[in-house]
């Protein structure tokens, strides 16, 4: 069983879009779900959000950022090559209904999971205000796609090289302050951004959802490695989520759990890059 890489491009420095042939996954995919892939027999299983899907063509798009060994190795693969394993769609689909006006906030590669939601919320008849951001304009992804999928699009960069100089959450606050009736805010990005965004939005009378990214193995509820605390109770992100009521999430625990293998991960990257330099890969 192997899954062919149909297309691959670098859409921002160290951020790649990959289209994979996986007809069964594509047929069942819904916004908010993810896949788990494994590059080869010795590889680890890593989750990536389904950034787009074409049911008829049997294609799944993922967008990933080079972080450590596996994503760097993934970035080196070319069109026409194969992934050993590609399983999905995993996770409970996002709860997308007609609500009125929704704000979608995406930071960094978090824009990738926001994109299918923007399309789905729009299709469900919502007014979709999207806010996307990155550290600088070069790192900003999916700007055109997001503009097409949203009613309004705002941009923020940390260094001010494009759009608002500052954070996506600043824009979100401004909209919430404007008095417009907002039914829901969805925030997806690095945990610290989701945590801060949640704190900013919490005082308002608005539903807040986040999509969590805890460390996973199987993605089917079998290992419990992805557990998070929500409303004081243990939940498995891969089956109970990844989307949760943001006000109830224990972000500090999440961030600490994400750091569990940090030392080993650093070593793995160093070793991998050393091997690459020696021409072993």
């Amino acid at each position: 069983m192997a899954y062919k890489i149909l297309k691959k491009e670098e859409i921002a420095p160290s951020v790649h879009r990959m289209i994979v042939n996986a007809p069964d996954v594509a047929k069942a995919a819904k916004a908010g779900q993810f896949i788990i892939l494994r590059i080869n027999e010795k590889g680890e299983r890593i989750p990536l959000t389904i950034a787009d899907f074409e049911k008829d063509k049997g294609e799944i798009t993922v967008i990933f950022q080079e972080m450590g060994k596996t994503t760097k190795q993934l970035a080196k693969l070319s069109e026409g090559e194969f992934l050993e394993d590609f399983v999905g769609p995993l996770g409970t689909p996002a709860d997308i209904r007609k609500l009125g006006t929704v704000i979608l906030v995406g930071g960094g590669v978090g824009v990738a999971p926001i994109y299918p939601q923007a399309k789905a919320y729009t299709r469900a008849g919502n007014r979709v205000i999207s806010i996307i951001g990155a550290r600088n304009k070069d790192l900003l992804i999916l700007e055109d796609e997001m503009r097409n999928a949203s009613s309004e699009l705002y941009i923020a960069t940390d260094d001010g090289s494009k759009g608002h100089h500052g954070f996506v959450t600043d824009i979100m606050k401004r909209i919430l302050d404007s008095g417009d009736k907002i039914a829901r805010v969805v925030i997806i990005g690095p945990p610290i951004m989701m945590k801060v965004g949640t704190e900013v939005a919490s005082p308002y009378d608005v539903e807040i959802l986040v999509s969590l990214n805890s460390i996973m193995v199987d993605g089917t509820g079998m290992c419990g490695g992805c557990r998070v605390t929500v409303d004081g109770k243990t939940k498995f992100t891969c089956v109970d989520g990844p989307e949760f009521d943001a006000r109830k999430v224990d972000f500090v625990e999440l961030m600490n759990r994400l750091a569990m293998y940090r030392n080993e991960e650093t070593k793995a990257v160093e070793k991998y890059e050393e091997e690459c330099r020696c021409g072993l890969h």
Binding site: V217, D218, T220, G221, M222, C223, G224, G225, R227, V228, T229, T234, E253, N256, R257, A259, M260
Partner: peptide, 24 residues
């Protein structure tokens, strides 16, 4: 295949595994 936890404080600390995760 669904692991049970004990429901005691500290069970989500780093280094606490279900046997399923550890053995997998």
């Amino acid at each position: 295949g669904l692991p049970s936890f004990m429901g005691i404080p500290g069970e989500n600390l780093n280094g606490v595994y279900s046997a399923n995760e550890f053995l997998t």
